[in-house]
Simulated assay, not measured.
Amino acid sequence: MNAETSPPNTPAPAHRYAVYYAPSPGTLGWLAGSHWLGRCAAQLQALPQLDIHGVAPADLKRLTAAPRRYGWHGTLKAPFALAPGVSWMDLHQAVQALASGLQSFTLPPMQVERMDDFLALVPMPSHAANAQVQAAAAACVTQLQPLAAPLGSAELARRRAAGLTPRQDELLTLWGYPFVLEEFRFHMSITGDLRQVDTRTADLVLDAAQQFFSDLPALRFNSLAIFAEPAPGADFVLLDHAEMGP
């Protein structure tokens, strides 16, 4: 969607919204990730997953359940509820304005790595474009925060229970999420917690993911994607792409 236009339909108010990096639906970058996860967040339909030798389909489905709910994406502004008095149109216009002030670029080459207890597609380190990724994420976090409702005490407690550093706790209080700014690392999750399966299965999934994504073409970072969680616990839906500058 062009940044000068309005959304074709005004969706019903959602429980939460998020601003992500996501390849455009229909592109190989979108289809590859969506098929790996088993769901297209644009067409709202299940997709067949990879058949990995030695891995039961139920194990792969369970391993990908967490990222499948969120759709194929890299987080820029983590899910948030809108502040009182803020509408979907306010959010849409703010994201459009933000996107139009950012310059599009090509992401660094992406590779599958283990991050703590899950697998993710991450950009090659020490690549010059990583600075642009960090800048785009920081702009989304800081410039869109006025539209977000403050976190409730239950959500703050849930986040803190995971064990945050003092700086992460400060970021959580300021920006609604602990892993932002200097704590941010861009990634596109391809599994949930690997401890759900045995070590052999996790290793087979890692090998398959590395092969599956090795031929992925260069990904263009040319838009900001708005996703919505219609109701608590519901699958996230891709609502729109706001185009960045040339």
Rank of each mutant, 00 (worst) to 15 (best):
L224I: 11
P166L: 02
R159V: 00
Q134V: 02
P109F: 08
L164K: 12
L172P: 02
S24I: 12
D215M: 11
A41I: 01
S24N: 04
A83W: 12
W30S: 03
L47E: 15
S6C: 12
H35L: 05
R185M: 06
P178K: 14
T64E: 04
S6R: 15
A138F: 01
H53Y: 00
F221Q: 02
S104P: 01
V55F: 08
A209D: 11
A148M: 12
L107Y: 04
N130K: 09
P48N: 10
D117L: 04
Q111A: 14
P25G: 01
G192R: 05
A22V: 09
P7W: 14
G245P: 00
L28D: 07
G245D: 15
Q96M: 12
P25R: 00
A46Q: 07
G101P: 01
L156K: 12
Q134R: 10
H187E: 10
V205S: 04
L107K: 03
H73S: 04
S189H: 03
S34I: 01
M1K: 08
P146R: 04
A138W: 01
H35P: 00
R220G: 07
F227S: 03
R68L: 09
Q145I: 00
A12L: 10
P11T: 06
A129W: 01
A46K: 04
G26T: 06
M89L: 15
A14N: 07
L238H: 13
A83L: 09
L63Q: 02
P146D: 07
I52W: 10
W36E: 02
A32H: 02
K61V: 02
A154M: 09
M188Y: 03
E4A: 12
G192Q: 07
E229S: 06
E183L: 08
E170I: 00
A148Q: 15
A22P: 03
V86K: 15
G245I: 00
H127F: 02
L181P: 10
I52V: 15
S126E: 14
V180K: 07
R160D: 06
A120H: 09
L82S: 10
F105C: 07
L171G: 07
R62Y: 01
A209K: 08
D235G: 09
D169Q: 15
V180L: 01
A66L: 06
A231F: 05
A18Q: 09
R220C: 05
R220H: 11
V86D: 08
T27R: 05
R159C: 02
V55L: 07
L204R: 13
A228I: 04
Y17I: 07
M110R: 05
L37N: 05
L98H: 07
L171P: 08
L107W: 03
G192W: 11
G54S: 03
P48K: 09
L239E: 15
D59W: 00
D51T: 14
A128K: 03
P178M: 12
A131V: 05
L98G: 03
S189A: 14
P246V: 10
